[in-house]
Design a binder for these strands. Structure first.
Length: 111
DNA sequence: AAGGTGACAGTTT
DNA sequence: TAAACTGCCACCT
């Protein structure tokens, strides 16, 4: 049994479940993992997500305000916005337009 | 081994 | 109202 105890790996699995054209927040992922207090770790995990396989759609993860807080950690500061726009998500002032509407909750999978 | 870091979030001033 | 502070905890050096 592979030890999937790693918090990061758990985060990656959830992030990969984010549908295209949708976004979620770090806190939502942490909450889904039962670690609502570890929301910072979620973002921290994304920093290492670039080395993960398959690649994790980190661009679909924003903070609770819908701001692209982690855009500076991408290849280019604007890469995150481009990826979002490529999926039909409008980004304005480094924030997702209609974030609340595009927000995707991991719990929506269960029902 | 111990301390510092940080792509957040909630609370307080 | 907005801005600033603290808590938080798994990973990294």
């Amino acid at each position: 049994m592979a030890k999937q105890n790693d918090f990061f790996d758990s985060v990656y699995q959830v992030v990969r479940l984010i549908p295209e054209g949708r976004v979620t927040s770090y806190g939502a992922i942490a909450n889904y993992l039962g670690a609502a207090r570890s929301s910072r770790m979620v973002g921290y995990a994304m920093n290492a997500s670039f080395n993960e396989m398959p690649p994790v759609p980190a661009h679909r993860v924003v903070n609770r305000n819908g701001q692209l807080s982690g855009r500076k950690h991408f290849e280019h500061p604007f890469k995150m916005q481009e990826l979002l726009e490529a999926e039909g998500i409008q980004v304005e002032d480094d924030a997702v337009v209609g974030f609340q509407e595009l927000f995707w909750d991991p719990f929506s999978l269960e029902g």
